[in-house]
Design a protein around this nucleic acid. Structure first.
Lengths: 229, 229
DNA sequence: AAAAATAATTGTTATAAATCAATGTTTTTA
DNA sequence: TAAAAACATTGATTTATAACAATTATTTTT
């Protein structure tokens, strides 16, 4: 964590967050007053499971992982620049149920929660949109929880690869921006098994693997592996 | 599903839902106009995974299970009288990510979603409270997802028993209002293993089991089993 | 550039959990 | 009330997955 700064103006910010259009120029200026940009280096912890959330976190640059700490970690999702890291703590119980760490060099806007709550309270269109984001983020976990509990190794790793290709990198070829251990933590399996299945998929020519470079060669088959679990 | 009726008045309803105090008498009357009470018999499906939600569901009487359908079902939580069955679909994507079925004879108030959205839009205090409920319901799943993916059979069954005792029946002794198969679906394991572990816990005098009647004899040890996973 | 640390890979072994099987019990239905 | 169906129980077997171990490759530090 380093280099603390105030944004010049949220209006001109290239990483302008969603729903800013619902706020008045005055409100946006007030956000600037209550916002601090913090830079995190790869690997640094952005927020820690169990602590109290005092700020809304918005990811302006880079990528972070949202994960649950335990004897073995479980990565629930990755967050790209231009997304809220967390809104769940804004209205409900305000302690973090997960930790967040930087996957590369990132910039995070931290806006005082109380301030956002005040803006939301007097602007129901804005609150409405925030609530939508919270709802959808909850909905995402229904599928995740059922996938994790019902699918086998191959299906779960297929899920992780499809998630990376479809949701994160939006490309069938991508640099896996993480270690094999983290890929395993995304798919809830041991690191050795993640490596093994990666090798199997490679041997079956479903994907190509060169170090961190992964290319999905047979998307449909990978999809099928995900489906049959 | 049977016996469709309109509530006499939501104001006098003994199962009055939360946050009604934030609405004007007129609003509450308008809810009555948009509300239908439907009775479900044990086992009946209240809502089906994949279909579109057009109504907010409020459980006035009885108990329902919220579960994800698949080759093997996964029961995510039970809902008691006096709780919303679902709010997630109110603001976000409006298709059900899960199914809901009655565990006993139940009464469900079904209120037109569009109507609630309108009320919420012009009453931000009300919207605020609904958002809190949605947030907390999402938060619940963080723990659930990590428990399911990291704990072993014994830890998961201990979780289910503690959930029933602490959250649902609020008593260390209770009638398991479900089959062994459903208990297994709550703990994400095979029915046979749920039975086996129940027998083990009984042999170890941690619980007593007589048919559906379960009593937690050594709460602290059960808690420890849940903790160590 | 060498040394140390971390990450990746593959094979082997041990363990957890599902499935299969057989049987007894309770509940529902005719 | 008898028969059928669903539920519960316990043991044996198979399968999936984690843990262990040994080796090589890559990255980081000195």
């Amino acid at each position: 964590m380093s280099k603390i700064s105030k944004p010049q103006s949220c209006l001109q910010c290239p990483y302008k967050w969603k729903h800013l259009n619902l706020l008045s120029d005055d409100d946006i200026r007030s956000i600037r007053q209550n916002c601090t940009i913090i830079r995190f280096k790869k690997g640094e912890t952005v927020c820690k499971q169990g602590t109290d959330a005092t700020h809304v976190l918005y990811l302006a640059k880079g990528m972070v992982k949202l994960y649950i700490e335990g004897e073995k970690n479980l990565i629930l999702r990755l967050i790209k620049a231009g997304e809220y890291i967390d809104l769940q703590t804004l209205f409900g119980d305000n302690s973090y149920r997960y930790s967040v760490a930087a996957m590369d060099d990132t910039e995070v806007c931290m806006i005082n929660s109380e301030h956002i709550r005040k803006l939301a309270e007097k602007n129901s269109a804005y609150l409405f949109e925030l609530t939508k984001v919270i709802s959808d983020s909850g909905n995402y976990f229904y599928k995740k929880i059922s996938d994790i509990s019902s699918k086998h190794l191959r299906g779960r790793l297929a899920d992780a690869l499809l998630y990376l290709a479809d949701e994160i990198y939006e490309n069938k070829e991508f640099d896996l921006g993480m270690t094999r251990r983290e890929l395993a933590e995304m798919s809830s399996m041991s690191m050795e098994n993640a490596v093994r299945i990666l090798s199997e998929l490679k041997a079956d020519k479903i994907i190509s693997v060169k170090g961190k470079r992964i290319k999905i060669l047979q998307y449909d088959i990978l999809k099928k592996l995900s489906d049959i679990g």
